[in-house]
Design a protein around this nucleic acid. Structure first.
Lengths: 167, 167
DNA sequence: TATTGTTATACTCTATAACTATA
DNA sequence: TATAGTTATAGAGTATAACAATA
């Protein structure tokens, strides 16, 4: 995390505006800003997930599968930011609840899963139940800014993933 | 998390562009985008924290204190997105390592802490060591976009925090 | 032999409630 | 009586390594 702000020494001249001062240095940390923005928005949705006895990682898995096509464990790990051992447990729990079901795959090593009808229903219900909260944030922040923010976030991720591996 | 995309039904007409399709729906979830952007950037910094045997929450605490002024536990909890019981453990661990020290406070209930000289040194060293990685992301993404993203993230958080409490 | 997941294990954080000390 | 933290405790995720099955 962390060092995504200017160094402690005065900001280099070519780094425009927003130069951190003693009192807002912390606010200019990218990873902290990402964490706090996520916390403040997610807090308003967590109750809908809690009501259905889902953990947030479990919900991300349902959400990723709700796009339609079956996915394998590796893809789910990457998209949902979940480590393989955690995903194994999560897929077992979701499967036992009948929310997901396994799909055969030509490559028998792959664990392919898809949403069951029950899982799709739970997904739709949760999205519907939380729509008011989503809308509230969306309207307060502004649709254009929201679209811009999403684009910037996805672009940042894509760019960062293509950078050469850390030493 | 979660429902920060359009509902499953077709996007309302007043929600411009970026309407989620079957294949990118997941990508348009704000909380997921925040998580993934954080993961991809933090991954490049985690080694610097690991090398110093700090957890990410511990590092956030040092970072928050590096702004200079002593902070109480409640403020640290909020700024670092850490629950009180976790912070208690973290402050104990940092204190035992001599990275932070307690500061007296008029209100004896408050647990006020500040960075020790050793803590400040570790902070400076970590920021210096990771500067190359920070710069790499900063340059690849672009200084203007980075500043814009930070502003949007902080604004989103502030707006969300001022919304009426969830039902 | 390389790849995909699972199992094992230790540690940390999350989350809630109950408790202590101070105001 | 309200507030600020700590302690207690259960549960889930993080992370690494070792293992199994398949390609």
């Amino acid at each position: 995390m962390v060092a995504l702000t200017a160094p402690t020494s005065p900001a280099a001249p070519e780094e425009p505006s927003q130069a951190p001062t003693a009192t807002n240095y912390y606010e200019r940390s990218l990873t902290v800003a990402l964490l706090r923005a996520r916390e403040s928005t997610m807090r308003r949705f967590k109750k809908y997930v809690d009501e259905r006895d889902l953990s947030l990682p479990q919900w991300r898995v349902l959400r990723a599968l709700a796009d339609g096509e079956p996915l394998d464990a590796g893809t789910l790990c990457e998209r949902c930011v979940i480590l393989p051992p955690s995903l194994t447990r999560i897929l077992r729990a979701l499967g036992e609840r009948g929310l997901t079901r396994q799909v055969e795959c030509a490559d028998a090593r792959r664990h392919m899963v898809t949403l069951s009808e029950k899982g799709q229903t739970m997904f739709d219900e949760l999205v519907g139940a939380s729509e008011h909260s989503r809308r509230e944030i969306y309207d307060a922040f502004g649709p254009e800014k929201m679209a811009l923010l999403l684009d910037l976030l996805n672009e940042l991720r894509e760019i960062t993933e293509t950078l050469p591996d850390h030493d």
